[in-house]
């Protein structure tokens, strides 16, 4: 994808609007959240891949976010599901810090696909958008 066809950077807010171990949710479709962990910023999809819950309300710790509802856990850097009942990863998005401001670039590509190997989420959210795993958080 050439730089000309890529999506624009979206300003999220000021750095100090996202304290350590907190997140700021953007009302994109689907929503994404910018997390701060160990001083680094990460952007991933906001909705837990197990059940519908905003991960911006989750517990952020050591570069991961844990959903408080059923304890699914995701790596903020790669989006990987680290703990059941989630087994599908979160989509990750590019983050850029420019001065005191945080920007993200949300690009989505590829077809929806359903991961069939997900014992912790039998039948739940079947057919929903899946994560594409593209992009990396950058501080």
């Amino acid at each position: 994808m050439s730089e000309y066809t890529r999506k624009p950077w979206i300003r999220v807010g000021r750095i100090d609007e996202i304290p350590e171990d907190q997140a700021l949710r953007l009302d994109t479709t689907p929503p994404v959240s910018v997390f701060r962990s160990d001083g680094e910023f990460f952007c991933v999809d906001d909705t837990c891949t197990h059940e519908d819950f905003s991960l911006a309300d989750g517990w952020v710790e050591d570069g991961a976010v844990e959903c408080p509802l059923h304890l699914a856990k995701f790596c903020l850097r790669t989006g990987a599901a680290l703990a059941t009942p989630a087994c599908r990863p979160l989509a990750t998005h590019e983050v850029r810090v420019d001065g005191a401001d945080v920007y993200v670039r949300i690009e989505r590509g590829g077809d929806d696909r359903v991961d069939g190997h997900c014992p912790g989420a039998i039948g739940s959210n079947a057919g929903r958008r899946d994560a594409e795993g593209a992009g990396h958080g950058m501080a």
């Binding site: 059940e51 519908d52 819950f53 309300d57 509802l69 059923h70 039998i122 039948g123 739940s124 959210n125 079947a126």
Partner: peptide
Amino acid sequence: GWGYNLAGELVNVPMQDR
């Protein structure tokens, strides 16, 4: 696994669709 937000609203029912 029914989930509630801080206000005590039911926000998640596992396998709501199925």
